[in-house]
Design a binder for these strands. Structure first.
Lengths: 203, 203
DNA sequence: TAATCTATGGCAGTCGCTGACAGATGACAA
DNA sequence: TTGTCATCTGTCAGCGACTGCCATAGATTA
């Protein structure tokens, strides 16, 4: 990897870290892009070359998760029930968090705190989730040999699965100082959710 | 109702109609607030006194639905399973659409077309949905005699129910020229969803 | 009719975001 | 090492969403 790319990655992370710290310190809305750019010593124009919008800072994690979900779907056996396959995707997302570097973990926990303190950001993430669901629905429809446009069940399967992810990450009943707490919580949610459905409902 | 209030309601609807027509004609993004305000002959400053943001034009329906859901929850018997109670809420939302005035129906259908052509708006609506879910969760937690902060099942119940609404409204497999098509579709979705769960999972 | 309340418009300003141009900097071959 | 090229970066000018402030026109009430 060349010097150029390494440098880019470094500023990308620097922006992310600076932004999160500023957000947590003085709030999301009252932090301007100029401030963030300033504290990393780049122009705000450059900021927008790294992140398409201020919001996008918060969505980087989401994008990562989407990729994992899609990737997992491709590797799961074709005859596995769709919902089960999606659940495996969710577990992969969780695993990815567990295995990430300490720096990434810190970033992730900051992001979580940020969302907790600023519910409007949850909305953002959920909005992005709608796009993710459309993409997942295409995959699941192919799997189930149905038409994405007409098959409601496909969309229900995807929507339910993604709901689990969201519920698992929100409402953590005690302070999350460690990803382990989050993972634990996520496992509980998955367990609960899986028991809620009739076997074979997702064929 | 005084002249003042009647006039206000009239401009409110005028703004909504003008905006939707402009959006459908030339796209959401390329329509400015100034244009909308101009075509109703008010200043853009006044526009922002009727709608807190350009986005809010699209969310007015959502807000209405939320109110119906909350209202319904209050009237349902306390010993009814939570999920069932929410489903009744969904049915009330559908009923409200069926019973609305022709003007409102037209507005609603335009909104639907708008969302179809502009997926980004679906995201907006979903984002607002996150806030709605939090409010519904409070009610459901009270019903189930659990703590909103800690009980995951409550959040799952709400999230699943709201997913149904969303799926029912999106992906309509044929052009929606009549609310009846939509209602029909919604019934199918509800049916499908209700059969997906184990009886008693939501106690 | 007078006093009062409130809806509105104009204006100035902030912030997010973009296109266009020019200068700086790393990549790579001779 | 040097020169060429691709890419990254900053500056600047500008648009559109949105807000606070103040003055005024209109509706409401006494």
């Amino acid at each position: 990897m060349g010097l150029r790319e390494r440098k880019k990655e470094k500023t990308r992370l620097a922006i992310l870290d600076a932004a999160f710290d500023l957000f947590l310190e003085q709030g999301y809305d009252s932090t301007t892009v100029d401030q963030i750019a300033g504290s990393v010593e780049i122009s705000s124009r450059t900021f927008f070359r790294y992140f398409t919008s201020k919001d996008h800072l918060v969505l980087w994690f989401h994008d990562q998760g989407e990729e994992i979900m899609l990737e997992t779907l491709r590797t799961r056996p074709a005859d596995e029930p769709s919902f089960t396959a999606l659940i495996h995707g969710l577990r992969e997302v969780v695993r990815d968090i567990q295995l990430s570097t300490p720096e990434d973990t810190t970033r992730f926990l900051k992001l979580r705190r940020l969302m907790e303190e600023n519910p409007h950001l949850v909305g953002l993430s959920v909005a992005r989730g709608a796009a993710t669901e459309r993409r997942l629905a295409v995959e699941i429809a192919a799997r189930r040999n149905v038409d994405v446009m007409t098959d409601q069940r496909t969309h229900l399967i995807v929507a339910f699965a993604m709901s689990i992810l969201r519920v698992g990450f929100e409402c953590p009943h005690r302070e999350v100082t460690d990803v382990r707490i989050l993972v634990e919580r996520m496992e509980e949610t998955l367990e609960l959710a899986q028991n809620a459905f009739r076997p074979g409902w997702d064929v």
